[in-house]
Design a protein around this nucleic acid. Structure first.
Lengths: 338, 338
DNA sequence: TTGTACGCGTTATCAT
DNA sequence: ATGATAACGCGTACAA
């Protein structure tokens, strides 16, 4: 592999000049610039990223950390879409993405150290961390630039999120407008902010419309289909006419539980989900749900992070937060109460 | 951040000695070793990966390349499981994984160059590349160590794969033993080796048992649910009593098409899939399918790659190939012909 | 066993 | 505008 030195020899200039050409430094004579560029082409020179990183202290690599709790949701397309969005945004801006999933073989602290302290990453993206896994505090402590996908209560963290509260409220109000009064909800794990927020939105809609929500109509699930099935089984005893389910995976399980009990969706019970997974439209019945732009959210997260990385050279390190709107996808799984 | 120099000062030795301690070099006095280790603890020294890489020319980073064609299958849990396996194996061996998905924003050649030529990755893992996307030839050309997940016909490539031919044959023979004679198949995209191999296994089983396979009983799909639905719609006209479907996603679509036509699975048509996705067991009816160890396959791929990276220092660069067995998961979607 | 000195490929500072 | 020269942090022959 040719180096700066080689190019310099061929072009008959010094390394410094070649370096300037490569980095688009303004003060270099147009003629020598062309000479150097020819030399670069000729010997097939490509800058060595590692050497460059050693000198600049920047790698153009960002680390994506996904804790164990979420990687359990692995069978959920959510994860794949997020990754697609993140890598796509990275591609666009010439960054690379190092992926690290917490798995059983290595604990959270070790992973964090390996990612953060080895100097390979300029910044970190982290998705849907639980409130209690200690990752965010550690990141704050380290001082490495990071952005979370999904809000975090700490005032110092920058995040991107979708309007979970608004989306949940919108979904619930849709049920209310259809005429439902006895509405239940299946929540996600309440140690995750999206689950909390969707419950909040649900309760707000119900409260605003003067509808009571007895405790028995709120069942906590775990964002999986099996969890949805189990939660719905319990909810069935309370005979709601409609259910707001905090994720599509949960909703799929809930629908199966309803059908398994010999009831029909939506004739006996209306079901509305959250996420708008690719499969939601082709379920039987097609699932009414709240669309969230997962891929776009991840893209945005990367952009915000890169923006922070650039600003850091200056001193404008104010917290950045962006919340994206959701959208109601009306399909067949909801109808008026009979 | 403290450097070798700092540690050396504190311990009262030279940088070289500290370096030796860190790299477990044998020839260093136990007493000085302890002194150095104390110094390291004291100032919280951590080796700087980039500087180290510049000197050793190794990064302990492997790049995972997934071409566009596969990233379309994104909604398939296959992808997530593969990633989980790969990252897990990386964690275990102290490697990092740089993920790069080919997306619309950047073409294949550019991506390849960015990954391979910048010196950030020691080796490359690539999943299910199409035969015609040119990635493998480029990798061979570059000379970078790589392993593909899924076999590749070129004699120079190392790969790990599951026994697609054997699995398909096993599935087909299961149908034959049940008494089926008129058996159709829905294949994957035939520019991908797994799709080819599964078709081969199917044909072999049929041939070995003296069963004819008219062309009309072979329909090419694209590994998606929608594709399965469309393919099955065509296949229905031929009235097979059983169908071997080359993937579970396809099979899910096929089942829906059958049910949509007012027929029952398995009473009217038996369906057998391939993959054993997590959802296969909870479908209605539960899907009989061929289990393939996706996560384990990815782990293995990482291990083989790392093995090659280590051997490369020596000269044993023989091609390595491993094929993992599959397993038949008998569930409800197959029965004897009526 | 330990230290010296050089190299890894760039960037950046300072003269010229 | 260009060219020495010193970092960047570490590994490693080689010498001691």
């Amino acid at each position: 592999m040719p180096t700066l030195q080689d190019v310099a020899r061929i072009a008959g200039v010094s390394r410094s000049t070649v370096s300037r050409v490569i980095n688009d430094h303004p003060s270099v004579d147009p003629r020598t610039r062309r000479r150097v560029q020819r030399a670069i082409k000729q010997c097939g020179y490509r800058p060595h990223a590692i050497a460059r990183s050693l000198a600049t202290k920047r790698t153009r690599i960002i680390g994506m950390i996904i804790p164990e709790a979420v990687s359990r949701l692995f069978t959920d397309p959510y994860f794949a879409l997020m990754l697609r969005g993140a890598t796509d945004a990275c591609n666009r801006s010439g960054y690379q993405l190092i992926l690290s999933l917490f798995t059983a073989s290595v604990d959270s602290k070790t992973m964090h150290d390996r990612i953060v302290h080895n100097g390979y990453v300029d910044g970190v993206l982290t998705a849907n961390t639980c409130l209690d896994d200690g990752l965010v505090p550690r990141l704050l402590d380290t001082g490495i630039p990071f952005v979370t996908i999904g809000r975090h209560p700490d005032a110092r963290v920058s995040y991107v999120d979708v309007d979970n509260i608004g989306g949940a409220r919108m979904a619930t109000e849709f049920l209310i407008h259809l005429g439902h009064k006895r509405i239940g909800t299946i929540t996600g794990p309440l140690n995750m902010t999206p689950a909390q927020d969707r419950l909040t939105g649900f309760l707000k809609a119900m409260g605003d419309n003067g509808l009571p929500v007895p405790d028995a109509l709120i069942v906590e699930g775990d964002f999986t289909e099996a969890g949805g099935r189990a939660a719905m089984a319990r909810l069935l005893e309370e005979r709601p006419t409609a259910v707001f389910v905090a994720s599509d995976s949960l909703a799929i399980g809930a629908v199966k539980a309803i059908q398994g009990a010999g009831l029909r969706v939506p004739e006996d019970i209306s079901v509305i989900g959250f996420d708008d997974l690719p499969s939601a439209a082709s379920l039987e019945p097609a699932l009414t749900t709240v669309h969230q732009p997962i891929e776009g959210l991840a893209q945005l997260a990367v952009e915000v992070l890169i923006d922070r990385l650039k600003r850091r050279v200056q001193n404008g390190i104010a917290v950045q937060r962006v919340v994206l709107p959701t959208e109601l996808m009306v399909r067949r799984s909801c109808t008026r109460p009979s």
